[in-house]
Computed example of a mutant assay.
Amino acid sequence: MSLKVRVTEDMKTAMRAKETARLGALRLLLAAIKQKEVDERIELDDASVIAVIEKMLKQRRDSINQFEAAARQDLADAEKLEVEVLSAYMPAGLSEEELATIVAAAVTESGAASAADMGKVMALVKPRVAGRADMGLVSKLVKGRLGA
């Protein structure tokens, strides 16, 4: 079953169970998926759906930080619930050791020698860890490996 179909089925289940918060998060996700499909005139595959979810998770995490800084815990809690719902559709994350191994292999493969070559390394690493790692952490590991 594709990820998009799974989200649709979960939305129907949430609707039947009257889980309003979960239903709202799933509707937002489906709306974002449909918007991307309409904009690009394509049918999204699982990798593209994961990219949409990653983008939404990043937005939610930024919102949580801003709401907590403004002492709006009620809004931050609502965003945290959405993060929890969206995270359920992400593939299993990679450990730091696994990431370090992938980064080391990419550095070797690209022949990177300095921080100027970071783009080459990130271009190799990103498809390998798509949806399974925080790109901020990946970037930090690459910088550490290249001595930036």
Rank of each mutant, 00 (worst) to 15 (best):
M1F: 10
L3I: 10
L3C: 07
K4W: 02
V5T: 12
V5L: 11
R6P: 01
R6D: 10
V7L: 14
T8C: 03
T8G: 06
E9C: 04
E9Y: 07
E9R: 10
M11Y: 12
K12P: 02
K12R: 14
T13F: 08
T13Y: 09
A14M: 08
M15A: 06
M15K: 05
A17S: 09
A17I: 03
K18C: 02
E19H: 13
E19V: 00
L23Y: 12
G24V: 04
G24L: 11
G24H: 14
A25R: 03
A25Q: 05
L26K: 05
L26G: 04
L26N: 04
R27W: 00
R27Q: 11
A32T: 07
I33W: 04
Q35G: 08
K36V: 11
K36D: 13
K36A: 13
V38D: 09
D39S: 13
D39V: 13
D39W: 11
E40L: 14
E40A: 15
E40C: 04
R41L: 08
R41V: 06
I42M: 12
I42K: 15
E43R: 15
L44Q: 01
A47F: 02
A47C: 04
I53W: 00
E54G: 01
K55F: 06
K55P: 00
K58Q: 11
R60K: 08
R61A: 05
D62A: 12
D62W: 01
S63N: 09
S63Q: 13
S63D: 07
N65P: 00
N65D: 15
N65I: 03
Q66G: 01
F67Q: 10
E68L: 15
E68G: 02
A69I: 03
A70P: 01
A71F: 11
A71K: 12
Q73V: 12
Q73H: 11
D74M: 04
L75R: 14
L75F: 10
A76F: 07
D77E: 12
A78S: 09
A78Y: 04
E79Q: 15
K80N: 10
L81Q: 09
L81A: 10
V83W: 13
E84W: 07
V85D: 02
V85F: 07
L86K: 04
L86V: 04
S87P: 03
A88D: 11
M90V: 05
M90Y: 02
M90L: 14
A92L: 10
G93F: 03
G93N: 08
G93E: 14
L94K: 10
S95M: 08
E96M: 12
E98Q: 15
L99I: 05
A100S: 15
A100T: 09
A100N: 15
I102H: 02
A106C: 07
V107C: 06
V107Q: 09
S110P: 09
S110C: 10
A112R: 03
A112V: 08
A112K: 06
A113E: 06
A115S: 14
A116R: 12
D117A: 09
M118W: 07
G119S: 08
K120P: 00
V121N: 03
K126R: 14
R128D: 05
V129R: 01
V129Y: 01
G131Q: 14
R132D: 04
A133L: 03
D134T: 02
D134N: 15
D134W: 09
G136Y: 00
G136W: 01
V138Q: 05
S139A: 13
L141K: 04
R145I: 02
R145C: 06
G147P: 12
A148S: 11
